[in-house]
Design a binder for these strands. Structure first.
Lengths: 256, 256
DNA sequence: ATGTGCGAGCGTACACCATACGGAGTACGT
DNA sequence: ACGTACTCCGTATGGTGTACGCTCGCACAT
């Protein structure tokens, strides 16, 4: 059983996550040399690095460089790379206070979605975080409580409350993902959609000449003319959000 | 300018993607030794590896091992790791024929969503593919055409057709992501939700005792009792899909 | 029939990565 | 004063993608 080692790391990480809200129990002595920096600074460096470069090239070496530390010293602050990213996520979730939720259900859902949307726009690397092992930190807990408060008292079951919140958050993340994808494609290739098309059009046309794509061709052209790009993520977000909210509101109305 | 090198790789990859539909132009001579295997076999090995292990530990070395080749020989079939994954994606997209779309709009949207859902369930690694540089292959093109055909002739603009399809596909991917996350968490930790909770409950309770989470506590408990787990991805998919379809149908009706 | 040269296969090397281990130095508790 | 716990970090291990350049089998032109 690896229960011991794993549980140890998990304990330590949970303690780190909640470090500002829990009085360090019997943490005890402060022997040895003073630490050069702090856990918060390590997390801050990580966030700055991820904001700059994304998570693809995120490395402990670069975090250490930003802090003026040797690589292995970072491991005296956080248990490892994955755990550091978990701490970064929770930190970012508490960066801005959750706006108060006023108005009717639709307005409250709208406010939640736009808060998440802004967060993804400011920290696109959140979309690259492996969510299969989420670390339950204070800001994630606050977030969930806040999201649930948007659908409290509307006459649906507890489970349906959770499902509504899950649907909304999932929609925002997928919309934000499209937005990030488009920006990254343009930035990394260093060319606009138009330029890319100009270069690849000959081959694509030759290649797609056999089969024909009437709808894709027509819709693609319409999008291209309207946006001067393959898509417009902001508008896609607005359109999808309206549909999702409509669907949820209709459901709630039907339950009453 | 790196235009030359990059464009070369892109050309080669596009040619590989469309290899079955385009007669190799002046590809020319077949000198030298016969290749031990084929591009399709390389892609197939890649898919098998990804199905087995996911993309986290996906490596060219493992692909080569499955083929009985040296590592570098794989590079004579595909330009690189990213391009191989792109080829795998397109291959998987053509694995099953797209079911015909009958019935009313809601039924057609439902059929599209379930097809995507099944695909993600069979190849969860699709959710890990970096989508910021999608390779336009024949099966992706077919897919888009098929999806658009579900919303053709319903009285909305071309751009709105694209937005509806984007919304639906995004919803399915986020629902599938939750499902995969839950399964992976359980499998990798080797413990059920209940066991995990039993181990971490003491620390979490101590840690969360300061703030209180009335809604999260109540909803979490309800979910736990109903599902004997933190969530039920299949039900979340059904619930969300119904809401999204309702929202879209209401929109289309309002346009008429 | 022959030999030329293309291209498949791949060994090696390089530049990265996370992180385990152990040593050196430091500052507190006793 | 001294043990000891703790920080910092050099080094090593085992992983990654892939560039480079070698060998040699084989198809084609002669």
């Amino acid at each position: 059983m690896a229960t011991d080692g794993t549980a140890g790391t998990e304990d330590r990480t949970l303690a780190l996550l909640w470090r500002h809200r829990v009085v360090e129990a019997g943490s005890g002595s402060a022997r040895g040399p003073k630490q050069k920096t702090t856990v918060d600074a390590v997390i801050g460096s990580g966030i700055a690095l991820a904001d700059d470069e994304g998570l693809d090239t995120f490395s402990m070496r670069k975090v250490a460089e930003r802090l003026g530390l040797g690589v292995m010293s970072v491991y005296t602050y956080v248990p490892g790379r994955d755990e550091l990213i978990g701490l970064m996520v929770d930190q970012v979730m508490g960066e801005r206070p959750h706006p108060p939720l006023d108005g009717d259900l639709a307005a409250r859902l709208d406010a939640v979605a736009r808060h998440l949307w802004d967060e993804y726009r400011r920290h696109p690397w959140l979309l690259q975080v492996d969510t299969s092992r989420p670390w339950l930190g204070p800001n994630l807990a606050d977030r969930y409580e806040w999201e649930l408060s948007a659908v409290e008292g509307i006459g649906v079951s507890d489970i349906e409350m959770d499902q509504i919140v899950t649907l909304l958050a999932g929609f925002v993340s997928s919309a934000a993902r499209s937005a990030r994808d488009m920006e990254r494609t343009q930035q990394r290739s260093g060319m606009s959609d138009a330029e890319w098309w100009e270069i690849n059009a000959p081959l694509l046309e030759r290649v797609m000449s056999g089969a024909n794509y009437p709808l894709a061709g027509r819709v693609g052209q319409a999008s291209g003319e309207a946006y001067n790009a393959a898509s417009n993520p902001q508008l896609a977000f607005e359109f999808g959000l309206a549909r999702v909210i409509d669907g949820v509101v209709a459901f709630v109305r039907a339950q009453q």
